[in-house]
Amino acid sequence: MSILKHRETLLVAVIAAMLALIASRFPGFVTPGNLAAVFTDTAPLMILALGQMAVILTRCIDLSVAANLALTGMAVALLNTVAPGLPVVLTIALAIGMGALMGAINGLLVWKLDIPSIVVTLGTMTIFRGIIFLISDGQWVNAHEMSANFTGFPRIEILGLPVLAWIAIIAIAAMGLVMSRTVLGRSIFAAGSNPHAAAYTGIDVGRTQFAAFVISGALAGLTGYLWIARYAVAYVDIAGGFELDVVAACVIGGISIAGGVGTVAGAVLGALFLGVIKNALPVVDISPFWQLAISGAAILIAVAFNARAGRSKGRVILKSAEHAA
């Protein structure tokens, strides 16, 4: 308990220290308005990290989230060009449903055919990308082809925050509730912590993994719409390689790739850590080309740190050593 709590507190401290450092020279960065902008900018990463967290907790990995996002985004963008009058709520429901369906495909392959998730999602990742090309014919969907309410919805401000940020907050709250207070959430932890024991307890590990993939897919679908609407453009390679940022956010947030260990707060903080760096680089006048290397280094430091914290101390048999240790 203490270690877990400790890990999240540490991440908060690191992010705070980073902000303080930036603020010492660029006070404009830490104004409430700008921090809100950073939060909003990081919203897609946070939402995806929540889904990825669920998947990683069950000892799987979902590398297809960015491709899922891109395919869903392209699909709703194309739909918007054909039916610009469609209510945004319906578009969002469609995006979530489509994403969930793709997640379900991953989940079924893992659950029913017992194929390792890394193989499944590597495969579906390339397939989803290919399908975008097929449905779009390789063409871009540009801002002027999208309807105003389609692109405008994520930017509507409520209580000073855009809808995009609110959706992230709702997603965080919902996942928090699911993970801590529902049977599914407990099953996800149990299935990853000790699959063998989970089976004895009557938890179907495969089905739990399936559910995690559906969650991850649904959130990716939701992000698909938000992403396309926010940037007002859709093309084949959109969010290319973003799955790595998502995995990075989880790893930095202390979610163990071995399953069973991790928290919603960790995933969110991991995403925010990357988000702050990304937004701070242009401010402190470092080329954005540094971002990739920095996030790579952050992953390595985080995983090394987590391993150190989680290392078992070995048995203490000697009475004298018991008190010393």
């Binding site: 540094w290 290397a293 996030s295 391993a307």
Partner: peptide, 25 residues
């Protein structure tokens, strides 16, 4: 360090290419 190779190499995947970006932009 006994770290899982999948995470390590996802990290170095970003790091190595990241260095290329730093050099070449």
């Amino acid at each position: 360090l006994g770290l899982p190779s999948i995470v390590v190499t996802i990290g170095t995947m970003s790091l190595f290419r990241g260095i290329s970006y730093i050099v070449l932009g």
